[in-house]
C-alpha cells in the first residue's frame, strides 16, 4: 500500500471530497505528524499505536563490513509501538493466532 491507495480510501469512502482534496488531506495528516515528531513530541493514535522518541547516548559500535570499532554518536530515534488492538487485528480471524490476545 502506498499513500495513493490511502487517498483512494478517503476519496471513495467518505464522499464529498475531490481527488485533489483527498490527496491534500492525506498529505496533511502525515505532514502534521512529521512536524509534531520534529518538535520532539510523541504521538499516540489510540487503536493503532504510539510513535515515541528516545534519546540514545553515544556508544561504541562496529562496522559490520570490516569489524572496525566505530563511535555511534548520540542521537534521537523514533520507535513505533503497535497498540494491542492493532496486534489483535493482525491475529484475529487468521490462522496465526488462537484467540490468546494481549
Amino acid at each position: 500500500m502506498t499513500k495513493a491507495e490511502i487517498v483512494t480510501a478517503v476519496y471513495t469512502r467518505l464522499g464529498g471530497f475531490s481527488k485533489k482534496e483527498s490527496a491534500d488531506l492525506v498529505d496533511l495528516v502525515f505532514e502534521t505528524m512529521k512536524e509534531t515528531l520534529g518538535r520532539g513530541e510523541k504521538i499516540k493514535i489510540s487503536g493503532f499505536g504510539n510513535f515515541v522518541l528516545r534519546d540514545k547516548r553515544q556508544r561504541q559500535g562496529r562496522n559490520p563490513q570490516t569489524g572496525d570499532p566505530i563511535v555511534i554518536t548520540a542521537r534521537r530515534v523514533l520507535n513505533f509501538k503497535a497498540s494491542q488492538l492493532l496486534k489483535q487485528a493482525l491475529n484475529d480471524e487468521r490462522s496465526a493466532g488462537d484467540g490468546e490476545a494481549g
Binding site: L37, G38, L78, F80, A82, L86, L90, R94, A96, G97
Partner: peptide, 16 residues
C-alpha cells in the same frame, strides 16, 4: 503470531 513493524523514513529520521 504476526506483528507490525515500522521503519522510519530517511527524511523523518533526520527531522527527529
Amino acid at each position: 503470531k504476526r506483528l507490525p513493524f515500522f521503519k522510519v523514513g530517511k527524511e523523518l529520521k533526520e527531522l527527529v
